[in-house]
Computed example of a mutant assay.
Amino acid sequence: MEDQFIKTATLIGDPTRAAIMWTLLDGRAFTATELSIAVNTSPQNMSMHLGKLLEANLLSVEKQGRHKYYRFSNKEVAYVIEAMANLIPKPAIQSKKETENYPPIKYCRTCYDHLAGKIGVAVTDSLLNQKILVENKNNFEISSQGEKWFSDFGINIEEAQKQKRIFLKPCLDWSERRNHIAGSIGSLLFNKMINEDWLRRTKDSRAIIITGKGEKELLKYFNVVV
């Protein structure tokens, strides 16, 4: 176990491979060429790094036509990368301007396939305050009233439980240093907001735009003021 841990940590610790993993937190699949551009390395070097990550089962590859698309091999890899970001030292002093005006990536973003940043944490806080979710031994659980709430909201809990992945878990937010929701429930909640046009993705970024409709609905359902 110790040897395997060291091997995995060494793989991720390489600057180029770390940049690849950070890029893939976007939640989309990328071609080798796209990753080469994103992390500023040659196609030959990218091929070597992707080979090592595939061998370690940290990435998977899917072929569509002439292209190969790379993504995390499973959701747990994404959680690990996001959690590692929490090791980044937080600035000791922040100016008033910095604390009042969040950069878009810290204000509202994706964490692989769920909502993160200040808004993601605020939504989670609201669900806890409304007793829709309850915290139990550092885990999240859905209360009995929460089951009705999710059903009324249009999320099928039974179907979510059948997915071959973690159902519901807290995910430590690297910019807020507090938990947001991950797992199949977090993914379904985020997709609902995207499909209902509360939120919109931005090109080549994990930052998320909140629409005018989203501002109203976030206030209505979660008492979150944008």
Rank of each mutant, 00 (worst) to 15 (best):
A116C: 12
N129R: 15
K203S: 09
S175C: 04
L168C: 12
S144M: 04
I210Y: 05
S126E: 06
F150I: 01
F150S: 01
Q163S: 12
N138G: 11
G214C: 05
H180E: 11
E135D: 13
G186P: 04
G154P: 09
I185L: 11
N136P: 04
A207Y: 04
G212Y: 03
L189R: 02
K148N: 12
I157L: 15
W174P: 13
F167D: 06
E176I: 07
H114T: 03
K220A: 02
L127P: 05
S126D: 03
K169D: 07
D113V: 02
K164R: 15
I119Q: 00
S175E: 13
S143N: 01
K137T: 06
I210K: 10
L127K: 09
K169E: 14
L128R: 04
L199G: 05
P170T: 00
D152P: 02
I166M: 11
I185F: 06
K216Q: 09
S151I: 13
L219I: 03
T211G: 04
C171T: 13
S143P: 08
S143F: 01
T202Q: 11
R200E: 08
F153C: 00
G154H: 05
D204W: 00
W174I: 13
D204P: 00
E141T: 14
K169A: 06
K148M: 15
K192P: 12
L168A: 04
F190W: 02
R201V: 10
L219A: 14
K164F: 15
Q145V: 15
I210H: 07
K213C: 10
F150D: 04
D197K: 15
I155F: 03
F190M: 08
E217K: 11
A160F: 06
N195D: 11
R206I: 08
Q163K: 14
S184R: 07
N136S: 13
R178H: 15
W198L: 01
